[in-house]
Nucleic acid binder design. Structure first.
Ligand code: FES
Ligand code: FES
Lengths: 151, 151
DNA sequence: TTAAACTGATACTATATTGATATCAGATAA
DNA sequence: TTATCTGATATCAATATAGTATCAGTTTAA
């Protein structure tokens, strides 16, 4: 059970790159290099995020992408929604007859409760929060961009 | 994002069938009919559950399957672990170099917290609990096995 | 004593999802 | 006026999910 797919993972990283260069355009190429994301794959993600009004773009030389929202207004819940589809219990409830009385279905009820909890938690994690957390960590080891790779 | 795949979904239902016939063997055919689970698919699931000591079997005529544990000792967390692989954050941490200092990685940290919560919640939901909840619901509408299908 | 009702074990197929590339047209700045 | 960008698609490969088929062996009961 994978919580975050590559798409969401990459999208978060890309947004963190954009958040770090607030106010100026960053090219897909630059983000790709910085975050190690396959270039064309990233392009697709950025276009998807344009459609959802998370970023805006500028074409041509020196063009690129920029956040079109406050980083605190971009939550993981939304990103997961965009790139993985919203959290679903299971498709059991779509099979007619088999789950009669689904309004009272116990299993469904229990899992929707968990769904709630998860969504709430993911909603609290925003790009802004991650950015600040990241800054805090970087402040502790101010030297190079890279530290020793843990086992 | 699908929380429960068919495998887990079906496994839960099968276990509920077994729990309802405590002490006697129930054939895969019977479970398949009762729960609307594709026969051969179900067989595979049952065998997998034997390997994990959740059920035991008896071959031949009048053979079948039986719970080999107390229903309260079978939690959804374990079932998800068996049929969907244990909950993982994302595979980002396996790509060497890209996530240096992963011990302090913010995103990873946040998501592992959620992972904890989810696992705890899933662990609380056992076959025994579902069975009791189910009984309670059935007690409210004691007549036929089926009620009107909600829209 | 044998046929029907079972499970064990495995191989296979189909479909969907995920991850990744490739192309070409058009915009823009130097 | 060309190199650097994005827009928009089309395509492809790898993996995961869902479901089917087959055959061997066990057990019960007629
Ligand atoms: S609605 Fe499907 S298991 Fe209940
Ligand atoms: S360990 Fe991979 S994003 Fe942090």
């Amino acid at each position: 059970m994978k919580v975050l797919t590559k798409k969401t993972d990459y999208a978060i990283r890309a947004l963190l790159s954009l958040a770090a260069s607030k106010g100026s355009y960053v090219s897909a190429k630059a983000i790709s290099a910085e975050q190690g994301i396959p270039y064309q794959f990233l392009r697709g993600l950025l276009q998807e995020m344009i459609r959802h009004n998370l970023v805006s773009s500028k074409e041509g030389v020196q063009g690129g992408f920029m956040l079109s929202k406050n980083p605190d207004e971009i939550g993981l819940k939304q990103l997961i929604g965009i790139f993985q589809g919203k959290v679903e219990v299971s498709e059991c409830m779509f099979r007619k007859q088999l789950c009669a009385n689904r309004a009272k279905c116990v299993l469904r009820h229990e899992i929707m409760r968990i769904e709630q909890v998860v969504n709430n938690e993911f909603d609290k994690i925003t790009i802004g929060k991650l950015q600040r957390d990241l800054d805090a960590v970087n402040a502790l080891r101010p030297a190079s961009g890279n530290v020793e790779e843990p086992k």
